[in-house]
Amino acid sequence: MATLEIKNLHAKVDDQEILKGVNLTIEEGQTHAIMGPNGTGKSTLASVIMGHPRYDVTEGTITLDGVNVLDMSTDERARAGLFLAMQAPQEVPGVTNSDFIKTAMNARLDEGENVSLFKFIKKFDQAVEKLKMREDLPHRFLNDGFSGGEKKRNEILQMRMLEPAIAILDEIDSGLDIDALKTVGQNVTEMQDGKRSFMMITHYQRLLDYIKADYVHVMMQGRIVKSGTVDLVRSIDENGYDWIKEEVGIQDERVVPQNDDADEQTVLGSCATREAMEK
């Protein structure tokens, strides 16, 4: 369907650089897993690709089949074929799931054209069943009062409905119990049709037991420091990330504020929460 190309991507939030030169090409039909410890810029990468207003791209390019994505607004990116299943989906009281998805589907059609109600309901019902969600989902408000697992499944349901060319799944496995993870895994696998591409962000190799990835990348300090196949995941699972840090000569893998004072830096490494509270 499409190729996503990220070159030397630098991005900052609140004047702090988080992404420091990301290079990644996802070709049609490929599934890439992005792994790495907390705070290394994985979710930021997802948000920047989707065009979250809080992030500023300072350098580099993102293109979709050669077209500059950075020039597009968030909704234009979505209509061009990008989809982001978010780590913490918003609750929108007052807006029903079915109104929302219907509007999103109509936005992809020419002006004045509408998706057929019959086809829509059929497709929605099918997606609800496939994701083992409550039957009243269409009438419930968008993520309003949903459990963590329901929200995640609703993201995948939206993906099923919208059929994007490139789907980014940001920690879709967090907050899911093993059965729900299986369900989500099956749904994603079903959509891996050799044309659609995926970028999956995760902490745990267990997601990769359910969804096959062609490539695995490890992010540290705001860039990809190691790439490989699924074998890389096994090494991480057995040995953790330390060997990669050693290999690439990194002490602190995160992109949290760097402190010049060496003493404080060790404190920061061991207890970031306390450090943040004391500030």
């Binding site: 918003q90 992809r108 408000f141």
Partner: peptide, 29 residues
């Protein structure tokens, strides 16, 4: 209007005005 809500709806392809309309209609339920 909550910027994050707007971003969430727009990330599914809704134009800013469509997203705003849905949120307002929901608010005025």
């Amino acid at each position: 209007i909550d910027e994050e809500q707007l971003y969430y709806l727009m990330s599914r392809g809704l134009s800013e005005s469509d997203a705003q309309r849905l949120i307002i209609n929901g608010f005025l339920a």
